[in-house]
Design a protein around this nucleic acid. Structure first.
Lengths: 137, 137
DNA sequence: AAATTAACTTGCTTTTAACAAGTAAAACTC
DNA sequence: GAGTTTTACTTGTTAAAAGCAAGTTAATTT
């Protein structure tokens, strides 16, 4: 769990965010869902970040319990599940984009394509719309 | 350290963000600096979140090493230090605001004042400017 | 029916966080 | 100016979480 222990964990929006997706792996899973087109367990595993399988399982379950992602059996192949963002999950996109904007500025080896970052800074609404339209629903 | 181990930790902006401030406590410290006017070690300790003193020390040092915050001796009282946001740190404000916007929507016990959230949604630029102007520099 | 794919779970080790106590430097207090 | 207080930590120990390796289960393909 991202945060299981703290007794009263309500009130502050930042605290709420942290309780819902506030760790490294959750952010990386969200990134995979939003920008990388990944949707299967094994794809998250193979993303190359080095997440442990038990931790991945735990994070996916947390995110699902928090209704940020949902899990459905793949109709084309019943041995696997499709993970996808809920509405609540897609609405984290602005936060992720703000973070990427910042990171691109301060990380000199960032791999964000220039056209992406240009669009992010000139027509953020449009970029966001395009990303949303390209998400599997 | 937020992330000390991963060998190659470059390229992706989300990964970069996580390596710089990617844990619960870092976010809460940033919140304190941005919105709560806290600047002393003991203020972070007393913020009521339950951070351990060794973890706080560690996070402050990480954030300082990452040049997101800076630390100076208080000229008025040399036994304490003033922690403040750098330019790099203040530029995380849009991300934090995006997160708060989201949280306010999904956390039904959020404590964000209505006027704050209204302004955030109607004149975000102006709100941001006001917050920046009120930060100690 | 046997082998493979996909998604986990379980058990163990290592790392990190939480908790409690102690130290050190500056600064007030008498 | 000596002793107490304030502030910011550090150190040591325990508890929790992450990382690692191997095993299990259900669906699917061969």
């Amino acid at each position: 769990m991202v945060d299981k222990k703290t007794k009263v964990w309500s009130g502050c929006p930042v605290r709420f965010g942290m309780s819902q997706f506030g760790d490294k792996w959750s952010f990386l899973i969200l990134r995979d869902l939003m920008f990388k087109g990944r949707k299967y367990y094994y794809e998250f595993m193979e993303a190359g970040e080095g997440i442990s399988t038990n931790v991945l399982a735990s994070r996916l379950l947390d995110l699902e319990n928090n209704e940020i992602i949902s899990k459905t059996r793949d109709p084309l192949k019943g041995s696997r599940f499709i993970y996808s963002l809920t509405q609540k999950g897609t609405e984290l996109l602005p936060m992720m984009l703000a973070m990427m904007d910042w990171a691109e500025k301060y990380d000199d080896v960032t791999e964000v394509p220039q056209e992406f970052i240009t669009k992010l800074r000139s027509e953020p609404e449009k970029l966001q719309q395009e990303i949303l339209e390209n998400l599997p629903s």
